[in-house]
Design a protein around this nucleic acid. Structure first.
Lengths: 190, 190, 190, 190
DNA sequence: ATATAATCGAGACGGTACGTCGGGTCTTCCT
DNA sequence: AGGAAGACCCGACGTACCGTCTCGATTATAT
């Protein structure tokens, strides 16, 4: 078994750490995740974690991985309304029901009092997600279904903002009725 | 200085604790606030804090006080557009520039991995704020400027959601141009 | 149970720590004594140890206590030869067979690469022991059995030095024949 | 530089390790010597140390080398008193002032809580030194200056014991007056 | 001259213990 | 009765070394 040497780290250790971190967030929540706990569950030395990750949020950030891309790439259905309804519904489900959604909320929460994490989260995962969120709008513009001078930044905030607000701030449920009506109103602007 | 007596708690101690907590959030951020630190700065025994507040977030919650009501009560100007523009602008300023806004963000952040705090925050400050957010819309319905069957819950989310999203998630600035255009689009739905 | 407060430390904790330290030296030797181990066995928090003792050798130093005085006070028998023979035999037994003797050897060993410990050991236990070692000689001088200008410092080294040398350096056994002959030769000087 | 080959170890590496170890004892004391530190200073891999020495004390033991024979071979002067006076004085100087003397004290100290080291130290360096210590006495017996049935073991302990005691236990200085008087008393036994 | 294999540097790995920080509970004395 | 002070047990922090391991490079013979 590969156990690490000067020409490369142990892939086994890396995977074990990320899985342990993921499990612990799901089981005990963000506060229940400790470097000590990750190390114990992963069967790994603490030093191995500190060698590769500056802090536990970095572990979670990496464990989070491509979950956003996997869950939140909007479908290409040929109709703006259909695409937005589906995308917002998936977003709501992701945020409120999935394990990676819980990790995402934990990270965004932590980012409120950790500027460093905030910066990395935003230039990384969030920036890429924003580009994905933009896709249905860009396609609609190309088809001529939306005005060519559309402010896509604002439009994206109009769509995903209310969903995030419900989840992160008010904690209310986000049923399909909510996201569908949100899209209907959005399209009523033109 | 008052050092305890048999007929009730010390108002001095209470105020010292809340002020120390507020100062510490401003100076060192949420993570820099510890019960030990509050006690030291307030010149108060740890036990006195634990006697009256279950945890440090409760101290912050009380220190937060009526700041929301003071900063975020929408003005009554007779015109829906004017009121919404002003209200959203004040919200953006509050969230991004003020000290209590920083505390607010810290509390919302902590609430992501602290269900207990989340519940108290929502049934308290947030529920009252939501009622305030609703006022311009209700007045507009009364005036006949908006349809009487308006879903005010959704409408409020449409307005404050994008602003919160920018502040809490993407971290982008929220200039007046953004909030003004948001209101213009909102009103364009009808 | 008293558990410590601002007006005094916990006597229970103190005793538990000292006993645990003593047991551990006896069971596992000096290298087997760790602050963590003492804390675990004593049922005490590590911090409580660090609060009152700068290091583990300080714990052992205090645990060592009055063992020297108890074991190595020379008897008053009225005859110099009898007293020295008995005293040296007891010294040999103490050093080679007793638990506190093992602690003593460990402390002297550690003192070889710990100047701070060396200083405290010498101004404390060792200085007092040297005074006890001198007693039989002083009594003999008073009785006129030894010259009044006797250099007691040198005489003490002549007597206990060879025994220590055997125990600490060569590790050879120190039977009664050895100590008895040592005394015979010592007395033959005059 | 030599970097390993199939037929035998690197003499460069060996010397670098021993020198680094010696330097570190002198600079930082026994506790400051770590395998990691030796490797770093010697520009050698840790594994290279572990391949050839079981532990750091073995490195020191080898680094110690023939220092005892070099410093502590008693001179052959034809007169017992002269030889003993000189030998004990050199012993005192070696123990209290020289670098190898410091290593010697560190090793004897460590041997108090390391039975393995103790055994190797005693069957090696110490046994050979004891034979050297015996030489002046054996010569004197041959010359008829000492009785033929002399217990040389005891006699050696009588001579070097007090010096070791001062150095290792009480830490007092060992001036020439002390060693000279010690020899005078020793000779007064017959 | 080339192929081979012990040794070398480097350093990642699983561990143990370190000494520190803060948490939340307690006891005591003073007001 | 309430408050200041602070000792207590506890859990986690991030660091230092331990001793083991694997890797690719080096190099003196034995073919």
């Amino acid at each position: 078994m590969h156990r690490g040497n000067r020409y490369g780290r142990s892939e086994d250790a890396r995977r074990a750490v990320l899985e342990a971190a993921d499990d612990l967030v799901a089981e005990r929540g963000f506060a229940g995740v400790t470097v000590e706990g990750i190390a114990a569950r992963a069967g790994v030395a603490k030093q191995t974690i500190y060698r590769w990750w500056p802090s536990k949020v970095d572990v979670l950030l990496e464990a989070f991985g491509d979950d956003l891309a996997q869950h939140l790439t909007p479908p290409d259905l040929g109709d703006l309304g259909d695409e937005l309804r589906e995308h917002l519904h998936r977003l709501a489900e992701f945020l409120t029901r999935s394990d990676p959604g819980a990790v995402y909320r934990a990270l965004v929460g932590q980012a409120q009092h950790d500027p460093d994490l905030a910066a990395r989260l935003r230039t990384g995962h969030l920036a890429r997600q924003r580009e994905r969120d933009r896709l249905p709008l860009l396609r609609a513009v190309e088809r001529g279904d939306l005005p060519p001078d559309l402010d896509t930044d604002l439009a994206v905030d109009q769509l995903v903002g209310p969903v995030h607000h419900r989840v992160l701030v008010t904690g209310e449920p986000v049923p399909r009725a909510f996201t569908d009506e949100l899209v209907r109103r959005f399209l009523a602007q033109w």
